[in-house]
Design a protein around this nucleic acid. Sequence first.
DNA 1: AGTATCGTCGTTTTT
DNA 2: CGACGATACT
Length: 756
Amino acid sequence: MSYLDQLNDVQRNAATHIDGPVMVLAGAGSGKTRVLTYRIAHLIDTGADPYNILSLTFTNKAAREMKNRISQLVGEGNSKALWMGTFHSVFAKILRYEAEKIGYPSNFTIYDSDDSKSLIRTIIKEMNLDDKVYKPQLVQRRISSAKNGLISGTEYQNDTIIYNDDLQAKKPLLGKIYGTYEKRCFKASAMDFDDLLYKTNILLKNHSDVLLKYQDKFKYILVDEFQDTNFAQSNILKMLAARHENICVVGDDAQSIYAFRGANIQNILQFKSLYPDVAVFKLEQNYRSTKTIVAAANQVIDNNKEQLKKDVWTANQDGDSIKLIKCLSESEEGTFIASEILDIKDNENASEDDFAILYRTNAQSRALEEALRRKNIKYRIYGGLSFYQRKEIKDLLAYFKLCSNPNDEEAFKRVLNYPARGIGKTTESKIMMAASEEGKSPLAIVNNVNDAHLPINAATKNRILEFAHLIKSFQNLSLEKDAYETAQHIASATGILKEFYSDRTPEGISRYENVQELLSAIKEFTEIELSEEEKGSENPRSLSVFLEEVSLLTDTDIKDNKDDESPKVSMMTIHSAKGLEFPYVFIAGLEEDLFPSQLSVNSRSDLEEERRLFYVALTRAEKKATLSFAATRFKYGNMQYNEPSRFISEISQDLIESPTIQKIEKRELISKKNYALVNHAVRKKLVKPSQSAGSAISIEEINQLTVGTKVNHDRFGKGEITGLEGEIPNRKATVEFQNIGKKQLLLKFAKLQILK
DNA sequence: AGTATCGTCGTTTTT
DNA sequence: CGACGATACT
């Protein structure tokens, strides 16, 4: 078969070893997606029914791309029958189908993390707890990790170890909050993201008939990015695969960067003990990067203790050295990166699309953006606020959700007084109180506001009735009409469209555009051809069905703005760069306390995760990686002085090229103030000397220098000081070098060593 | 009920 | 610094 010839030996063996458990350890850029897609194609070619194949990814984008590639190999008819999607979307689909088994309606809504945080906030308030002690975000994290660890609210409350932990943290009521949160979600017929995995576990564990059904259905299971699975996910896999044990997991422990979110690296490290007869394949040939980049990445990751040893190598060219740029400030870092981009673009005939600037935190993007704007370089920022998290979108979606699930409490609260219709906070809390007392949904209270004996005046009651009628009319419409008609009607009948249309401020215009974009996405949805399955159902293009599809989409799933397809530099956090590759990659902000993050330096495992993150960043680069750090940076409005990241010194010097001193002295934007700041930075280094090789000499050492002192310089070699002038921090030395003659050096930058 | 000002907080985030 | 939520006004 021709397509198998496109694989190397290991890849082919991994793709064609069909029976029994398989683990593919795939180094960065080693073609793991290729193996997965060809494996699926091969399965189908050798007689497997696509309907029996389950392939799980972590992003919708990855699933879509893989599906496309497979349909090119085996035809669209075959690829359509595959179950291919994210963990969350596949199990949401199963949960909708089996919902009643666990007491949920099949039209349950999915709470995103804002929704669930808001519910947690309400609960904390209702319990009269101090939200300084019970910070909603912390509570949310706690609940999330409990669910990921498959611990229910009741189990949490009955577990003495957990309780003592919480007691010691002076938060004994966390379990109570979790329990209440669980009940409230259930009452609202809502599941949060974690529930999609948690409830699937419950479903499969408590209903052996259901488990058997899916075990038989999914004869072949494939999992991408296995290193990022958490306990809830690996447990589902374990249950589903128990019957046929045809499970193939692909991953790279060196690229596990989501442990902070519950991903458990042990899943991949201990896969072998779970399936003793597993066939392990190591993909070690990198097809993406130069030898230099591969070598540097290997050196870095070698510092991690906890890893499965791999020997990643490449047949590619040596390529350029890794460039290291030392900057005075974040703005200078931006400027330098911008001019470097222009340089490379001219010299190597590259387009903006070939560049990526990666950083540890989103906050770093601002200074970089400004620099690119100043030099008129087009860029695109990934991440930040996602489309579906925007207020205007969430507001409109809340109307949709309320139509499809009248129990949805968060959606109700969102739309009750939006757009403003004179139903304020006080009235809202009266309604919510009544709902919880009578055990009804808030919408049910509103529908019968005349019967409920609420202390609400007549005028407000009328406004509430009007609201109730409005929602009722939307609900009726959504049953008959398709999603687009319903949505269009809701957007205009509520006045939301008009409100944004008449707002001519830039924000208003952008909101209007966003709403239009949502509407056109809905239009697109209604125009998708019906599948066989859907032809039987009542209103297959209803708003409810749209919601089911959309609630698990994220920003990267939305197509780019079609109006502007000009090439752009990509800017994003390293986390969101996983799985991507670019010819030229800049990694900015390589400073201690930023990368590695300050919160990681006290634990070895956290630090190792940061290192893996750096490994991911480096291995995104095909041709050239450029690292930079800034000696000073604004943090929370204060100037901070930084030492270079320890990760820089983990790359051997012969792979790194630092800019020449002359180039540094020619730099733009160096003010006297900046010099003073660097002086501080140098002083700080004195207290805690940096291990990084090739750093400038300390002030103490500068003071020791006299005419006649013998020195060594990284690039210029050995020499003798013949003159000294200027005061610290701008003290300069004239050095007579043996090979190249006289040079003037600014001592705070010069990488001099004093020779005895 | 809607707005102005104050205070607090601050990693990463495929879903 | 700057986003967002809570509180205090009008």
